[in-house]
Design a protein around this nucleic acid. Structure first.
Lengths: 153, 153
DNA sequence: CCGTTTCGTAACTTATCAAGTTTCAAATAA
DNA sequence: TTATTTGAAACTTGATAAGTTACGAAACGG
């Protein structure tokens, strides 16, 4: 099955965005993610609606944080990118009136719902700034000076 | 993302299989699932390897349980259908050497792993026969006589 | 033996949707 | 006005479970 990498990618972008004082263009970000600017704009649009980033058009424009990383949880970002389907496992719906299928789906749904609740609870506990802190700690342990660049733009 | 309905479907099949004394043909099962026999054979092949079902060729052949439903857990069936990918959420791997991406993925992976562990633990706790029992209880509550047919073949 | 049933399996097509792409209009600043 | 940059629509691509087609092999009945 195909994977949905929007949450992962947007977190990556947010962390890099924090270091930059100036706005980052969709082009720069696309280069960072190995993709193209239209996709970046499409995905960041969701974050803009939540106020997590702001965008400006024209010369000198681009994307900047709309609030501190300490005020966003992974859950917030997950919701902002459209709360994508979490599971690749699905329930059959071939025979909706079949009591057997209903029993199977009910049991599976219960387990899946528990797992989903746990996951979203964890996401809600983690601030995006925690990732930055973890990163900084690991970088320090490796003896790496700050400036956490990618194969940056 | 596409859903993987193999676990759900095979549980459905196993429960129906228990009621039948005679072998069920791939054709019958396909009719029950609203699909075709080749797909049924392909998917049941995994269950056969685990000994959960047995197949016989030729006239009067088909598929039958290889062991009682009380000796199979949802986890067993999940593994038997190939332990499909559980999550639709994926981790980016565009910049594997980027410490930021690593920090993001590490955090996401930890939460996903916890959720996966919980799910598989639940699956391991539920016997396939429990589903049949739940079903029977619900059917009784609804005043339905046994014989838990689908839009059966 | 022969014909029918049924599984075994390989090879191919389809459906789905995030990802990727192309393109142009609109807005902003120099 | 010209270059830059987002906004957004419309389209193609890629991955893969599902679905399909086809045929060989095995088992049984007559």
């Amino acid at each position: 099955m195909r994977h949905d990498g929007r949450l992962s990618r947007m977190l990556h972008v947010l962390l890099h965005m924090e270091e930059q004082k100036r706005p980052m263009t969709s082009d720069e970000i696309a280069g960072m993610l190995g993709t193209n600017p239209a996709l970046v704009r499409r995905t960041l649009a969701g974050l803009r609606e939540g106020g997590y980033v702001v965008s400006e058009r024209g010369h000198g424009g681009g994307w900047m944080l709309g609030k501190p990383l300490s005020e966003m949880t992974l859950r917030d970002v997950y919701d902002a990118v459209g709360a994508p389907e979490i599971f690749a496992l699905g329930l059959a719906d071939d025979q909706p009136q079949c009591l057997v299928e209903q029993a199977v789906n009910m049991a599976l749904r219960q387990s899946l719902d528990e797992a989903k609740a746990l996951l979203l609870r964890r996401f809600a506990e983690i601030r995006v700034s925690d990732l930055r802190d973890d990163f900084a700690a690991r970088a320090a342990a490796l003896g790496i000076i700050p400036g956490m660049s990618c194969a940056d733009a």
